[in-house]
Design a protein around this nucleic acid. Structure first.
Lengths: 174, 174
DNA sequence: AATATCGTACAGTTTATTCTGTACGTATTT
DNA sequence: AAATACGTACAGAATAAACTGTACGATATT
């Protein structure tokens, strides 16, 4: 029979934070952000920067920058409580939904950016003059061009797939 | 009218490598691995470590460890050519399919691991004695327990979702 | 058998990321 | 208005990741 005391619940919580953080890493969160995020998630009430700092044993500055990052990703929100001067933050409602939304959004955005970069380069390549080049270079250009077309198609596929994911997502225990 | 010369095709290729690498980062590849992978992908024929080293301007040791990593992820394969002593590697056929497979596999594996870790801790928590604890700790234990159950559900959902993705994937231009 | 070539283990260096303390602007309290 | 509390910009320190050169075992060549 194991006894739970103050010490061991802290320990378990720390372990949980680290374990869940690994999963969040998959969804593109840095380890630092993940730790902060899970800390907020496990805390039933909104937290101040000082509380987070205390809970994680890291500086308040780190909390400040971490929170900003999580806010940008739409995973955390600021809440107001009458009479409290300090900023209060909490993990967003519908955590898992938001997590997926954030991830999917990030992926689509990135895919879109990279796609247009590639299209720009593809255009640059195809509209250029190939006069006076030896056959080797012409072949290389052709090969590269073909690959780039495939890449662009792939990025389009990513955009579509993640769009489908977004509209079909079905996780809802909350 | 832009003229293509040796210099500029190298430049474009480098840009393409860096751009596509960003997308691969989303799928959990490190930047170093991505660069190597795209280099192989853009090269029509299998490459030796020395060729990669030369193409990327990095040491052969880096190529060796990078290739090992890509092999483990199932993204690269070794090929044999009669009379060639050096190891030859190429990006796998059905690149995009493999990329997704690898990614999905990675995610499911990770989700599974974290799930069982969490279940173990959950069990530890629920089977322990709560005698002689004040109400505050009991509440904290309850809260934590509830969160962990949600987390476990979430990991199960990930496993299922990615399994569905795996069987439904529809990208096929190759 | 001796020599050369190849791939990688290992340890140390370089580079990038993360974290911290100080300092300062803004807002609140006295 | 002075003093206190708060959040964050910034620069430097600590930590982690990526890269390299040397060394060595294994295989191939002479």
């Amino acid at each position: 029979m194991v006894l739970i005391d103050h010490h061991s619940i802290e320990d378990i919580q720390t372990k949980v934070i680290h374990e869940f953080s690994k999963t969040l890493n998959i969804f593109g969160l840095s380890t630092a952000d993940s730790h902060l995020f899970v800390t907020l998630y496990l805390h039933k009430s909104p937290m101040t920067l000082d509380e987070m700092s205390n809970a994680l044993g890291k500086s308040k500055t780190s909390m400040s920058t971490g929170i900003r990052s999580l806010l940008e990703q739409g995973l955390v929100e600021r809440v107001w409580k009458k009479g409290v001067r300090k900023d209060l933050y909490q993990a967003n409602e519908n955590l898992y939904k938001n997590l997926m939304s954030s991830y999917i959004h990030k992926c689509r955005l990135a895919a879109g950016e990279q796609k247009s970069s590639l299209m720009k380069m593809e255009n640059e390549l195809s509209s250029s003059s190939k006069d006076g080049l030896n056959e080797e270079y012409l072949n290389r250009v052709d090969d590269l061009y073909g690959r780039m077309q495939d890449m662009i198609k792939f990025h389009e596929w990513i955009e579509e797939t993640f769009h489908t994911l977004k509209t079909n997502r079905s996780f809802s225990d909350e």
